[in-house]
């Protein structure tokens, strides 16, 4: 393992966290603003690119690591949380942020979502939710309304939507928030708090898909700050989240559960010491 010694350097600005590779998303996509929120949050926290890792799976949102100057990992569909957990557990010194979408994170990656909340590894999970599979041309995702018509599910899926925030809460996430891509500064502030809070932080970012869900342009008129403050009572948070309409923004729950971090690098034996157990 190489751990570079920190050199005294000038603070890194938000712009420095942008890579020289220009984002390729549909013009109008909410994810553009999420890049801005990431870079602002990283800069505001005083992170350094070499000690920050952004891990993703597959989908529009998962392209984000390439657009940042931090270390990035663009893995397979739905498994970003597992890759990120491995990275963080092996390298507790790094700041690990995971970027996902509603298909990658809630459908194919649904199992890992529950277990990541439960495991409570100290990392931040950002799901850019646009209620649709964009990369594969507009199929319904777990957060798509049941009557949304598409080629793959003509007339709608008829299946109720998944409620990620409540599931995160029930599964044990230590921080649950909702943000809106159209509010990059507010989103950056939420990300700052998410990263600062020990344990598994879940941030859902409503991020419109203007190509397949153009009506989501109206989200900017629907979102509002949550009328309640942050609570550390999961039951209260659950009751509140279950009854909101999905457009209340803010940090809705922040717990105090200690993160899961087995003591990496703290053994005091040599491999050869293990042979004693085999010797006759």
């Amino acid at each position: 393992m190489t751990t570079a010694t920190a050199r005294p350097t000038v603070p890194i600005s938000a712009r420095d966290f942008k890579s020289d590779y220009n984002p390729i998303w549909c013009p109008g996509c909410g994810d553009y603003s999420v890049v801005l929120s990431f870079t602002r949050a990283f800069a505001s926290l005083g992170l350094r690119p070499e000690n920050t890792a952004v891990v993703s799976g597959i989908g529009c949102s998962s392209r984000i690591p390439a657009y940042l100057t931090s270390y990035g990992f663009h893995g397979v569909h739905g498994r970003s949380l597992a890759a990120a957990a491995g990275l963080k557990l092996a390298r507790p010194d790094l700041t690990v942020v995971v970027a996902s979408g509603d298909g990658d994170g809630y459908s194919i990656g649904g199992n890992h979502f529950m277990h990541a909340c439960r495991r409570n590894v100290d990392m931040t999970y950002v799901v850019m939710d646009n209620h649709v599979y964009g990369m594969t041309k507009g199929q319904p995702s777990p957060t798509t309304e049941p009557d949304w018509n598409s080629k793959l599910s003509p007339g709608g899926t008829g299946v109720r939507t998944f409620h990620p925030l409540v599931i995160a809460l029930a599964a044990g996430a230590n921080f649950v928030a909702r943000a809106f891509s159209g509010d990059p500064s507010g989103t950056a502030n939420v990300l700052v708090e998410a990263i600062k809070t020990p344990g598994f932080s879940f941030v859902e970012i409503l991020s419109p898909c203007v190509t397949f869900r153009p009506e989501q342009r109206e989200w900017k008129n629907a979102v509002r700050p949550a009328p309640v403050g942050t609570t550390n009572d999961p039951a209260r948070a659950a009751r509140y989240i279950m009854t909101d309409d999905g457009f209340n923004l803010g940090i809705l729950y922040r717990g105090e559960r200690a993160p899961y971090q087995p003591p990496m690098g703290r053994g005091n034996k040599q491999p050869a010491d293990l042979e004693k157990g085999f010797a006759i």
Binding site: M1, A53, V55, F73, G75, V76, R79, A82, A83, A84, A85, G86, L87, K88, L89, A90, R91, L94
Partner: peptide, 9 residues
């Protein structure tokens, strides 16, 4: 995927 993440680290 965890071991891939750890090894990336």
């Amino acid at each position: 995927n965890m071991i891939i993440g750890a090894s990336f680290g």
